[in-house]
Computed example of a mutant assay.
Amino acid sequence: MNNSTQFDAARQARRITEQAVSWYIEQQEPLTERQRVAFLAWLRASPRHVAEYFAVVQMHGDFKAAAALKTLTVEQLVDQAGRDNPVVMFPMVGSAIRKEHVARPGRARRMAMRAGGLAAAAMMAWLGIGYWRDANGLVERSFQGDVAAVRAVTLPDGTLVQLDRNSVIDVHFDKRFRRIEVIKGNALFDVGKDMRRPMLVNVGGHVLQDIGTVFDVKRDASGDTLTVISGRVRVLNAADESKQGGIAALLSADPVADLTTGQQISLSVSGVSIKQPAQVAKVTAWLPSEIRFQHETIGNVARRFNAYTSKPLVIENGSIADERISGIFHADNPQAFAAYLATLPDVRVVEERDRVRIIASNQTDTKAGHL
Rank of each mutant, 00 (worst) to 15 (best):
V280A: 11
F215Q: 10
S242I: 03
I291N: 09
S289Y: 08
T227L: 06
I247A: 05
L236D: 15
Q294K: 09
N306D: 07
F293G: 13
D240P: 06
E290H: 14
K311S: 06
A238F: 07
E290R: 15
L251S: 06
K275D: 07
S266F: 04
I291A: 12
P255E: 15
T213G: 02
R219M: 03
V235C: 02
Q294N: 08
E290L: 03
P288G: 03
T297L: 04
I274W: 14
N306K: 04
Q209I: 01
D210C: 03
L208M: 11
F305W: 11
G246Y: 04
E290W: 15
A285W: 08
A221C: 01
W286R: 07
V301G: 11
I298G: 14
A285L: 11
I247Y: 09
N317I: 00
I291C: 08
E241G: 09
S222Q: 12
V314L: 01
V283M: 13
V272W: 10
L259H: 14
V214G: 07
G231N: 12
P288A: 10
Q263D: 10
K218Q: 14
T213I: 02
K311G: 13
R303Q: 13
G318T: 15
D240I: 01
K275G: 01
K311Q: 00
I247W: 14
K243V: 09
S230W: 02
I265P: 01
I298L: 11
L251M: 14
V301I: 09
V269G: 03
N237I: 02
S252P: 04
R232L: 05
P312D: 03
A248K: 15
E316I: 05
K282W: 09
A302L: 10
V272Y: 06
V235G: 05
L313I: 05
I211E: 14
E316H: 09
Y308M: 11
S273Y: 02
S273C: 00
A257Y: 09
A249K: 15
A278C: 04
Y308E: 05
V314W: 06
Q209H: 10
V214S: 08
L236M: 14
V301W: 06
P255R: 13
S266W: 09
L226P: 07
Q294C: 01
G271P: 00
Q209C: 03
N317Y: 03
D258V: 00
L251T: 07
A253S: 15
G212H: 04
N306S: 01
H295G: 10
D240C: 02
P312A: 12
G299T: 11
D210N: 08
K243Q: 13
E316Q: 12
V269F: 11
V301F: 00
T297P: 15
T309K: 02
G223W: 05
L267V: 06
A238I: 00
V233Y: 15
S310D: 14
N306A: 00
G246A: 06
L313V: 05
E316C: 15
G231H: 03
N300Q: 08
S310N: 09
A221S: 07
T297E: 11
V314T: 05
I315A: 13
D216R: 10
V314E: 00
I291H: 09
I298F: 00
A238M: 02
R234K: 12
A257L: 05
I315F: 00
T309E: 04
I320L: 04
